[in-house]
Design a protein around this nucleic acid. Structure first.
Lengths: 198, 198
DNA sequence: CCTACCGATCGGTAGG
DNA sequence: CCTACCGATCGGTAGG
């Protein structure tokens, strides 16, 4: 029997542990969160956590791997979708921002806590991040080739500029704010694509 | 006698402790760095550190406060300098990136480790960060008022987009790379001001 | 700046 | 999932 697929509404102790760990790792960092913090938040005694998870690092790995997977799953379909390069990049930006906004704390873990993975898991996490960046580089190159983007763009710098702007939103996006993720996505896509000059 | 001004080339045990702490806090995070890590890196026994510093948090406070001060000192002079709003914003972007590139690890501490300051020091750090953002909001408003920037920009989102792109450079900028901080600054300013559309 | 040490907390486990 | 506990490590200190 295959592993059951995980989804957002999964319940049970394992899901509860993951849920509170995302919040705590996101706010306090991995090294700033103790297993006792997690146990208290989920209503267990510290040792009882190990009936559900193998280790603190396995918990981090699950969150990071799943998180990277969400970004890839949301954005990758648009790389080769129909539409012009501009339209496709706009959709990629919007999709990325939706994933960030869906859970800013989880996004913070994906962006900043992967460093604490051990040698067994770090290389794959880095490789998947690199793959993700390559999706955007590919999108930029398609736009340059089509003549829609400036011909002399430094692809790497452009992608890091775009992803930096998008990723920083995990610091400030509020699900209770005036602007929805979609609205913020459009505003940021406008700025990044057309600039701010009149 | 006033406190001696600190500068980059200051020597002595206190400066050595600060220097290695910046590197360790930047790479491993504040909570992921022990006083024993710092002591080993600087060649002292753990307890000996307290002949030079009051506490781990005082060490963090010194790094964060000095770091924010560097950004303000580098950027603030350009807010009301001569030149058009576009020229001024370009200089602010360049100055910010120079500070990041001068010491990416220190910048990471300023961007991400301030959260671990206690209630005595956290409010001022937050206020100084807010003040810094306000410099950029002011610069955007000046450009809109002068008709150089798009009239309907969401100032807050634009500033967060710009600062996000700039701050992310602490993740990837290498002093040994092909591009200097000034070159990266120009490329990013181009992207942010004029966009990527042909 | 070292010697020697403090109480508290860490991630994790055996046995039930 | 609890009881009871392990050795290791934590930030920090008294006394010199």
């Amino acid at each position: 029997m295959a592993l059951a697929p995980r989804n957002e509404t999964e319940s049970g102790p394992r899901a509860a542990i993951t849920h509170v760990s995302i919040q705590l790792f996101g706010k306090q960092g991995y090294t700033g969160t103790s297993m006792r913090d997690i146990a208290n938040a989920v209503g267990l005694l510290p040792g009882s956590l190990y009936a559900h998870i193998a280790s603190k690092e396995a918990l981090l790995l699950g969150i990071v791997a799943d998180g990277i997977g969400r970004f890839i799953a949301a954005v990758e379909p648009f790389v080769d979708s129909s539409g012009t390069p501009v339209e496709r990049l706009r959709k990629m930006i919007g999709a990325h921002l939706e994933v960030v906004a869906d859970n800013p704390e989880r996004s913070q873990v994906v962006f900043h806590q992967w460093r604490f993975l051990g040698n067994d898991n770090l290389p794959e996490a880095i490789e998947r991040r690199r793959h993700y960046e390559a999706l955007f580089i590919s999108a930029i190159e398609a736009g340059v080739a089509a003549g829609e983007f400036k011909p002399n763009l430094n692809r790497r710098i452009v992608v890091l500029t775009i992803l930096g702007a998008l990723n920083w939103s995990a610091e400030w996006f509020s699900p209770d704010g005036k602007l929805s993720a979609a609205q913020v996505g459009e505003l940021m896509a406008d700025s990044l694509l057309t600039g701010i000059l009149a």
